[in-house]
Design a protein around this nucleic acid. Structure first.
Lengths: 229, 229
DNA sequence: TAGTGGTCTAGACCACTCA
DNA sequence: GAGTGGTCTAGACCACTAT
């Protein structure tokens, strides 16, 4: 084992930050000095500090040196797993029921998000995920019918989410959290009163310029999406 | 410029993933083979693939090699900035108004989250953030009165959020999104109808075993927290 | 122009884990 | 036991930017 691993260097840097030995806005020693002081190679210091900069603790500029962030932008990473995995990771039994699947015209909001012309038709899939028999979340998804194989996919047995992950290549997308009041339909499926405040997760995914799918997950009452800082 | 940068290697790997040249679950060439093929050092390949593994695209095991994830757990990173910065980044004018600040007994839910005994007293701060004059979010925060300097801090001019970021050293915490229906008080401050579904962001931060603060941000109607995948 | 971080290289040894 | 990823080193050159 080398004297100093990059992890040890990072821990030491975090210790100095937390102990206020290094203070917000102040410049810290350069990589070469730290490497000499800690007895390791500069590359080791570089890796340790690079990751702290990516996490928002430090700001680094060539020639300008490395400073503690004055206003650290905390970056919180949330895992967005396949719903079934999410449920099973909580130690519950996941099941899935297809409610409807038919091709129809995109509603205006989805059409705008996917930048499609008017009257574009997509496959609309509505499905309910349950955990230990209780409603967990409602999946309201629009799928581009041009996606290869989607015509023969059977979303009754495999969720559209999983089918898409396994069968399409995508290049990017976006995710957003929001809140909605349950309408009568949603309330019925999720077993809550109409008007209940529910957390939503909207996702769109693209293969280059072509939209693959837009989905809204509406979680059952009280659901939270958590992570560590 | 070297022939192949780690970024170029990563782009090439992503191209092979997206083109399905490499398929989910299948093993990809080992680092040495890729380095030879692409004409770079193994360390360069290592950095490229290590980051793809951290992002959930690949699973790597010593001796087991590197495989494409069968069920990629997408990791979405959200920036959790100081609210004022968040507002200003949207090109709006941020302002802040302290609504109340007094020390009182922790309510049960917060007490449990912070693992404090019954009758623990914290400083309770309620404040409204506005963007271009319109309500943006309501900050409902509990601060450990043992935090150094909190007794003399003036939260009327500087938000508690910013004061804490600048004046305390913390070691960790957690974040959670949720949804609540506006009660009469919240509705009044945020200018919406009682019962409106609102997005919440709950945060707790710790200095080792000592809680520093617990905060709930309740965003105005329609607010979304977004990120790219 | 000079200082600092960003990256690449070639080689080495180690840690894990599969067969 | 052996294959593969994880990491460290020492040196080098480059890119950016503060002065």
């Amino acid at each position: 084992m080398p004297a100093m691993t990059w992890q040890a260097v990072q821990d030491e840097a975090l210790r100095r930050i937390r102990s206020r030995e290094w203070t917000p806005g102040a410049r810290i020693p350069d990589e070469e000095a730290l490497a000499r002081e800690l007895g390791c190679a500069r590359a080791t210091v570089n890796r340790a500090l690079r990751e702290l900069a990516a996490a928002g603790y430090l700001e680094r500029r060539r020639k300008g040196g490395t400073r503690l962030s004055e206003t650290p932008v905390r970056k919180a990473t949330f895992e967005i797993p396949i719903i079934r995995q999410d449920i099973e990771a909580r130690g519950m039994r996941a099941s899935y029921r297809l409610l409807s699947a038919r091709e129809t015209v995109l509603p205006p909001a989805v059409r705008a998000a996917l930048k499609r012309p008017a009257d574009t038709r997509f496959l609309h899939v509505l499905a309910l995920h349950t955990a230990d028999g209780a409603p967990f979340c409602l999946e309201d998804r629009w799928i581009n019918p041009a996606v290869e194989g989607v015509g023969t996919a059977d979303f009754a047995t495999l969720s559209a989410n999983e089918w898409l992950v396994r069968n399409t290549a995508f290049s990017g997308g976006d995710v957003a959290f929001g809140a909605v009041a349950a309408d009568a339909t949603v309330a019925g499926h999720l077993g809550c009163a109409p008007g209940t405040a529910l957390l939503t997760l909207d996702r769109t995914t693209w293969a280059g310029p072509t939209p693959i799918t837009a989905a809204r997950l509406t979680y059952a009452e009280g659901h939270r999406v958590e992570t560590r800082l």
